[in-house]
Computed example of a mutant assay.
Amino acid sequence: MKVKGSLFIIIAILTVVLAGCGGNKSNQSNEKKSLSADMSNSSTSSSTSSSSSSSWSNYQYKVPKSVQKNADYVKNGDLSTKQQFTFDRFGTRQQLADVSTKPVDIKADQLTYKVNQVRVIKNTAKTPQAKEAAEQVLNLRNIPDTYYTFVLNYTVTNHHHFKIVLNGVDYVKTDQDQMLTTTNQLTDSSAGNKVGANRAVSFAMTGYLHNYASHPATKLTIQFGAIYTMNQKKVAASPDSTLTIDLR
């Protein structure tokens, strides 16, 4: 599934309290969920956003008319070519820096995890609201005015004969030795979501790329998490192997 022009993805509202889950995976604040939804131009099929908090619900950045006339400006956020850019509603200029559409997959515990697309986004905060929202969503104390993120779209196929519940991604590591988790610099829409028997569901994750301008990461290594039944019984722990993908 394609997430259009998204700097940040919707953080899934957990529908099941999973045994062994970390506190932050099952207790994301309502405001953070709302901010994540508002900073994304589309949602994943398995995610639901809460209503915007009162402190943010009325803010809407107005893109200058002179900027709208730029040939690289994409109003609907569907960035597909390098240098194209859009804006989220808080005033973050999101420009496509790189994109990889080479499918990569891994099979483990009767599940297939397939990465369909990964994009590198150059983000420039044009307003204080844009910086504050980004810091809350990515759990960063102080984010630069210009920074980079990756936006990764992937699909989970369940080959079991019963419905499962995902515990989300354990971590993502870059080849620059940066470690990202959902409590630090990473959002992932799969945590707490269900995948029916012999069905496939698409998700997305977004991560902060530290010092990308001067020391760009070129690879991501993803450790997917455990899976459970609807009754909170563990079906399988995290896969023994990880999935490595290229950012370029």
Rank of each mutant, 00 (worst) to 15 (best):
M1P: 02
I13Y: 00
S42I: 01
T92V: 10
N184R: 13
T221D: 11
V3N: 09
V151H: 13
Q83K: 12
M39L: 12
N27Q: 03
I222G: 04
Y228K: 05
V120S: 10
S238K: 13
N24I: 10
A71Q: 03
L180I: 10
G168F: 00
M230T: 13
K62N: 14
V3I: 12
H215K: 14
A200L: 07
Y113P: 06
A197G: 06
F203A: 07
H210F: 05
V118R: 02
K163M: 02
F85T: 00
Y212I: 06
G91V: 02
V118N: 10
Y171G: 02
D170P: 11
A213Q: 12
L7Y: 06
M1Y: 10
A134K: 14
K234A: 13
K32D: 00
Q83D: 14
K131N: 10
D188M: 09
S55P: 03
L138P: 00
G22S: 10
V120C: 11
A71W: 05
S66Q: 12
Q232G: 01
G225C: 11
T86P: 08
A213C: 03
K114F: 06
H215D: 13
G168M: 11
G77S: 08
T149P: 04
Y154K: 02
M179Q: 09
A71R: 11
G168N: 01
G5A: 03
